[in-house]
Design a protein around this nucleic acid. Sequence first.
DNA 1: GAGTTTGAAACT
DNA 2: CAGTTTCAAACTC
Length: 682
Amino acid sequence: MDTPHKTQITPTPTSSLSKFEDSPVFKYIDSLSPIEQAKSSQTDNCFNSLAFLSPSSLFPSPQINCHRESRFSVKRHHFSADLNTRVLQSSNESNAGQEASKAVEQSGLYDEHPGCLSNDSSSKGISSDLFDKQSDLAVELPGTSNYDCRSPEDNLEACDALMKKTSLEVVEQERSPFQRSRDEWKERQRSFENERDLRKIRRIKPSEEAAGCGWVAVVSDVADMLTVNTSIIHENSDGQDQRTVDSGTTSFISNIPEFSLDNANNLEHAESGDHQGSCKQNELGESVTDQISCILSTCLPDKPVVTDSSLKKDDKGEKCSQLSRQRSIRRRCLVFEKSPGFGLHLNSLPNILKGQNPPNKSILSSMKMGEVPSDNGTAVAENSSEAPASVGGTDADHNTPEKKRQKFELVEESASCKRCNCKRSKCLKLYCDCFAAGLYCIEPCSCLDCFNKPIHEKMVLETRKQIESRNPQAFAPKVIRSTESVLDSWGENNKTPASARHKRGCNCRKSSCLKKYCECFQAGVGCSPSCRCEGCKNSFGRKDGCDESGSDGEGLEACEKNASDKNSHDIVTHKNAEEHQDLPVASNISRSSSQLCNTPEHGSSESSLCQSKFNSNLQAIPEDETPKVLKHKCLPLVPKTNSPPNSKRVSPPHHDCSSSTAQRSRKLILKSIPSFPSFCPP
DNA sequence: GAGTTTGAAACT
DNA sequence: CAGTTTCAAACTC
């Protein structure tokens, strides 16, 4: 049936046009859909490039094109031969092609078979073929056959000739200078998109290889790829994939390295499984897209769901599970883009290890306690006791995500977990340990009306900024590793062993710095002249000089007394508490510290173990890596108290065990510790 | 588990 | 900057 619009579209009848209108294909297409052309142009945002009826069709969203291109840009060349054989038809049947593509899209072919069309085009018949062309042209965007034939493909020269004789004759007559400028713009756009595709292709592999260090690039790359029109979010209306951002905001970014580490193999297996007996993945673009999909699916918090669904489909042999994944992934990545992650938030650290599970500080604690990510991205407990043999299994078992998850969960259980219990501060003040430590509150927390969650990221950031505006060091480590230079500034001699000190000092009045009310004691460091404590009896070092080295008998006596009557309990309690509590800068603790702790020379006695462990849990940061601001603020510290400046530094009890080696090792360790991350975007 | 103590953080 | 209040952890019972 002839619609009035067709005559409108081709107002200048040509012999060729009339010829093809009489073709069986045209009639068939025509009979397929009664959709009017004008309506199509309005409703179809993507595949109306041949209609040239409305500005909206002339300028489809470049973002849409971005993601379409990722699917079709390479495919275009693959179909070029086929296209050549039928371009005469299609180019003159733009209307019919559009309708056909619409029909295809409605029937799901568009989404379901993009990667398989080359193989079953015959079976799919003209619909698929038209779809191929349509998708191709839709991606190409220019909307003119002329542009289409300016593709670098040499074998399109014939196409060029044909096109010039057919549709171009029609279209060019109607091309206005506006359209030509539009074509130029789109050509530039396509150039940009091609470049971006190349970047995608180029980056996938390095991202896998770079593993941990390259994931930032992956993130940026992902961000590049995620500039998708938000309309895509609603592309799939089943609602199954609608997710809240929440924890995924951080896990998204932080999980990327895990993909690099963990899922490279899985990806290979999954992909090979996906394509066996179904779609032949012979196109680089498809492969890259799938890899990207897997990266993203790995990064996403609901990966299990996605993976499962995908696997189900794969098991059924359905060919288009990849696309479904891609679409879901795109949608959820949009969510991420809408609510970018708290990139440097410490909660992301555990996610690096934990994968898709929600952020959990316990893993951070695990790291702190000496568990470090192994090469495959899992946390390895330095203490063998924390790595049950049942979890270990074979090497093959180690590589399975389930085993890793179990391992993580076990590690998590055995590790400590900081749980705040805030009731009034909404976890947005430094009262909250989680917030002060730069961590989001998580499930184990018992806080009420907590706003320290990824979903309130903006509020968290604003609050942080506000607090930092009051005190730039508010989120800096409270305990710094004081080197000789600092001690010098405190008027102490260089022979005193370097130790950690509370940056600001405590202000205890009643606890005598012998309870965890005292931040110095809690951190396991001695009080310093910076402290304004009264009656300091800090067993780790009194403000006025309690040196276990023996030079100060009274001090030592006091300390020993403390250790005997109360510290024996306190230290043990402290040890336990430190083992079950996160310190604000857990990242400062290296595995080497734990190794030191477990080496025979250091671990001969319980007390030395305790102390070593205690030291390893300090919030200390090397003075070398202390920010200049911090140095400037800390170095000229003038004690407010009247404590004599010549008080000897007090070493923690039992420090005599391998002190030199320990100190040397600790220096090396601490120098390798990265500086405290800034939470504020630069 | 409830109540108390404590000192840092926040506020004025 | 100092004094006061608020807050949550530590502690005691």
